[in-house]
């Protein structure tokens, strides 16, 4: 068994430090929002986890294309790892969004474009995992997974556009709009810092998960060897 690479150890440490700093910034550095109060602080990690969720699905789609072109199992592991991580982070984003929505909109859930799209994204990638589960041949599993990840990634923006054609009440932070709210410099710094931190968390987890996938594959290969 290969030891954990040095770079990964350093990345682990850096990620933990950044995460602690981000938590500190959210609670002690960012000012209290005038209208929404304390609950607004959930926003920093809410957007950051949603960002990681979408990043992972982008990675999965790219890995899918790479797998179909190169037929290299390594890309399959990357795709699966990205989907698994993003599924969890997107779920966190939905839950933290609900926590914010209850006091702000007066309801845990509303059928608003971003929320509905988020729910559908979760279903698409849950279907991805179910599809993989139903296939035994690893090569076919990789191929079908790649195809489905690509199709899912194409369909999700269309879903968003189609629901967007209705009206939306979700605050628009980046860009302008009636529901936008302005961030003070300290808020903006905290926000960008959170985004950066969660990107690191994503990279770190992805690396670990890919490593796990490769080790699992080695175990499979060794098992086959013993049986022979």
């Amino acid at each position: 068994m290969q030891p954990k690479p040095r770079t990964l150890q350093i990345l682990d440490l850096v990620t933990v430090l950044f995460f602690l700093a981000a938590v500190g910034m959210v609670f002690f550095y960012a000012p209290l929002e005038a209208v929404m109060g304390q609950v607004q602080r959930v926003f920093y990690f809410h957007v950051a986890t949603a960002w990681v969720g979408m990043l992972g699905f982008l990675v999965a789609a790219i890995a899918g294309v790479a797998y179909l072109v190169k037929q290299d199992r390594k890309w399959d592991i990357v795709g699966l790892s990205a989907v698994e991580i993003s599924l969890v982070f997107f779920f966190i984003a939905i839950v933290s969004g609900s926590i914010w929505a209850k006091p702000s909109w007066g309801t845990w859930w509303t059928w608003e474009p971003r929320l509905t799209t988020a729910a559908i994204v979760e279903l698409v990638y849950a279907a991805y995992l179910l599809l993989r589960q139903g296939l035994e041949d690893p090569e076919r599993r990789a191929r079908f997974g790649a195809v489905y990840a690509i199709l899912g990634f194409i369909s999700v923006p269309l879903t968003f556009i189609s629901i967007r054609l209705f009206r939306t009440i979700h605050p628009v932070v980046v860009g302008s709009g009636a529901a936008a709210f302005d961030m003070s410099p300290a808020m903006l710094q905290t926000f960008l810092f959170s985004l950066w931190t969660f990107s690191l968390v994503f990279a770190d987890l992805l690396w670990h998960r890919i490593r796990l996938g490769r080790l699992a594959e080695r175990v499979e290969a060794l098992k086959l060897k013993i049986n022979d």
Binding site: I120, A127, L130, G134, G152, S155, L158, T159, I161
Partner: peptide
């Protein structure tokens, strides 16, 4: 392995648009 059961699960989230 799951065949018929799987199709709606795969299909519906993608045809929502």
């Amino acid at each position: 392995r799951t065949r018929d059961v799987l199709l709606p699960i795969l299909l519906f989230p993608l045809v929502i648009p």
